[in-house]
C-alpha cells in the first residue's frame, strides 16, 4: 500500500477522473452500472412490522466513493448491518464480485473482502493503539491455539504485520500514540484508528458508518483526504454521511434511502437537486443543507 503523507491535506475535488465512468449512467433507483463490485437484490428487514430496509436492486461501482444518505431512520445503518452479516435479512441476496455473501457470518464477510466501521467507534480502548491495528491483519498464523505456542511459525509474519501497521499509523498521524491505550485517544483519533484497523484487513470494499460524526471540524478535512486516498488506491468506499457538504464534496455517486428503500441515486449534483430527496429530508432544515448546491 503506497504511503502518501501529503494526501490528507489535499482538498478533495469532484468529479474526479475515475468518477467520469459514471457520467453516462442515468440517475434512477436501481440503475445498472459498468463493472459493479457489489450487487444487492431484494433485501428486506422488518422490525415489529415496520420495514426498516427494502432495497429492490442496488449496484455499487468498483473503485469509487459511494455515499449513502437519507433522513434519520431511513435504514442506512441497518443496511450496513445486513450487508456485513451483523443483522439477518428477512429476504434478499447480495454478491461481492459474484460471490454470494447473504447468510454469511460477519467474520466471513470481512474475510471475503468487505470490512466495515461502526457509527459509535469500537476502538478497543483497553488495548494499545498498535495492538488494535495488529489485530486487523488477516490470516495470522499465530491465531491458532497450538501454533501460538510455536513462535517460530509466526514470528516472521508478525514482523511484517507490525511494519504494515506502523506505516498505517504514520499515514493516519497516530504514530506518536503507538503504545498508548486506545482509550486515551480523542474521538476523531478513534475514528482514524478504526479506519486504519479496517485497512489492516486489506479489504476490497470498505463501509464507513458516519466516519465524520462527532469529529472535530479541523480533522474532517484530513479524514476526507484519507477517504479519497483510499479510492485513488483502487479501493471501493461506501459511506454513510449526514453532512451534505461532505457528501457533495467527495462522492462519486450518491444513493438516497428513505423508509428503507432507495428513492434516488445518481451523481452528487443530480441527487442533491432531486425533489424526492429534498422531500425525504423535509422542511427548511433540508433546504439549508442543500443550499450550497446549484
Amino acid at each position: 500500500m503506497p504511503v502518501d503523507p501529503l494526501a490528507p491535506d489535499v482538498a478533495p475535488v469532484a468529479p474526479t477522473a475515475s468518477s467520469r465512468r459514471l457520467a453516462s449512467v442515468p440517475a434512477q433507483p436501481g440503475v445498472a452500472k459498468p463493472d459493479p463490485i457489489l450487487v444487492v437484490d431484494g433485501v428486506t428487514r422488518t422490525f415489529g412490522g415496520l420495514k426498516a430496509v427494502d432495497v429492490a436492486h442496488l449496484e455499487v461501482a468498483r473503485g469509487l466513493i459511494t455515499s449513502v444518505i437519507g433522513p434519520n431512520g431511513a435504514g442506512k445503518t441497518t443496511l450496513f448491518n445486513l450487508l456485513t452479516g451483523f443483522d439477518t435479512a428477512d429476504s434478499g441476496t447480495w454478491t461481492l464480485d459474484g460471490v454470494a455473501l447473504h447468510g454469511k457470518h460477519p467474520h466471513s464477510v470481512a474475510r471475503a473482502g468487505m470490512v466495515r466501521t461502526f457509527q459509535l467507534t469500537k476502538a478497543l480502548s483497553k488495548m494499545t493503539v498498535i495492538d488494535n491495528l495488529l489485530l486487523g491483519a488477516a490470516n495470522q498464523k499465530g491465531e491458532g491455539m497450538i501454533s501460538a505456542l510455536l513462535p517460530f511459525l509466526w514470528r516472521d509474519q508478525e514482523r511484517e504485520v507490525v511494519e504494515r501497521a506502523d506505516k498505517l499509523l504514520d499515514r493516519f498521524r497516530l504514530g506518536h500514540m503507538r503504545n498508548e491505550y486506545a482509550g486515551t485517544l480523542s474521538g476523531g483519533q478513534r475514528k482514524l484508528l478504526e479506519m486504519a484497523r479496517a485497512l489492516m484487513v486489506e479489504p476490497r470494499v470498505i463501509l464507513l458508518d458516519e466516519p465524520m460524526a462527532g469529529v472535530n471540524p479541523a480533522l474532517v478535512q484530513s479524514l476526507l483526504g484519507h477517504v479519497t486516498a483510499l479510492r485513488d488506491e483502487g479501493m471501493t468506499v461506501i459511506f454513510i454521511e449526514h453532512d451534505m457538504d461532505v457528501v457533495m464534496g467527495i462522492s462519486d455517486w450518491v444513493v438516497c434511502l428513505a423508509q428503507g428503500a432507495v428513492i434516488a441515486e445518481g451523481l452528487p449534483q443530480a441527487v442533491g437537486s432531486d425533489p424526492k430527496v429534498i422531500d425525504a429530508y423535509l422542511g427548511s432544515h433540508a433546504a439549508d443543507d442543500f443550499g450550497g448546491t446549484p
Partner: peptide, 18 residues
Amino acid sequence: RVLKAIREDEDAARALGK
C-alpha cells in the same frame, strides 16, 4: 490478542474477520 479484543468488543473483532 484476539481473545482480548473479544473481551472488549466482540463486534469489533467480528468486523475484522475473527
